[in-house]
Amino acid sequence: MSLPVHDINPGADARLQPVRRPGGISPWSRAFDRLIGDRPAMAGLAIVTVFFVIALGVWFGWWGGKWAETGDGQWLPPSPEHWLGTTILGQDIFARAIFSTRTAFEIGLVVAAASTLLGALFGALSGYFAHTAIDGLVLWLKGVLDSIPFYLFVAAIAFALDGNPWAMHIAMIATFWTTTARLVRGEVIKLKSLEFVEAARAIGLHPLVILFRHIVPNTLHILLVQATIVFVAAIKSEVILSFLGLGVQDGVSWGLMIAESTSEVIAGHYMNFIAASGFLFALVMGFNLFADGLQDALDPKRSGR
């Protein structure tokens, strides 16, 4: 049984207008149309797509494979051979920046997917069982995690896991789910009083089936937006954590490149810094623009545009 999705917009409008618009235009396709018409968002999506292709290429070994190879010339200026010059070890900076794109996507995707799932799970449980012990426990956990400073939490996890390379990911996932959970909780509380949930309850479906089959899919718009926001937060945090020595342990990342460059820029070697921060800025900007447009498209009231 499939129930209408997300079309129920409580409030005066829902009472005055038919739930289904004539012509059967779903809210998702309306949101899609809005998104397509949003030029900054489309520009953002284009940027993200380019970066994603770069990352895929690295996965398939098409390019960026020579990032660790040391060459003869150190601190070479940009040339047709080395587009962005070389490092102190003669490594090609462009190749390193390209390879780091893969690192960024790995971190972003893993953290965004896991923390969104966790947020959806906890948020849904806490919303559906609002004001019960389950809800109290989730809220308590969220409060606790929100009051520990992020970098210290990562440090603590790194200690506990004794230098495990996943410490950073785990710490990010463990902290980033809380916002998603809060938003999902609010939405679930709103949704669970609607007719279609009453109907599902009346025909005797198990509460967990109602929750995860019928309610949670209706929070997809929140999850999508949150996932893009967490993605951005994750790759930005990686940079700072790598600088603090808590980030990427092996391989190369923009954060490691920037951390390396902190001592180089004083001596006048800018390419490492420019390459890494430029790539980072472009990807984050692209994601921010897309996330903004996505949010506006799914909730046109939000920005009042």
Binding site: I240, F243, G255, T262, S277, L280, F281, V284, M285, N288
Partner: peptide, 25 residues
């Protein structure tokens, strides 16, 4: 709002490095 999105897209670390370089060096 456009400038705000640009500002949000710059890493804190990059800002610190760039400002130190610009104003200090």
């Amino acid at each position: 709002t456009g400038l705000a999105v640009v500002g949000m897209s710059v890493s804190f670390l990059v800002v610190i490095i760039a400002f130190q370089l610009l104003f200090g060096v």
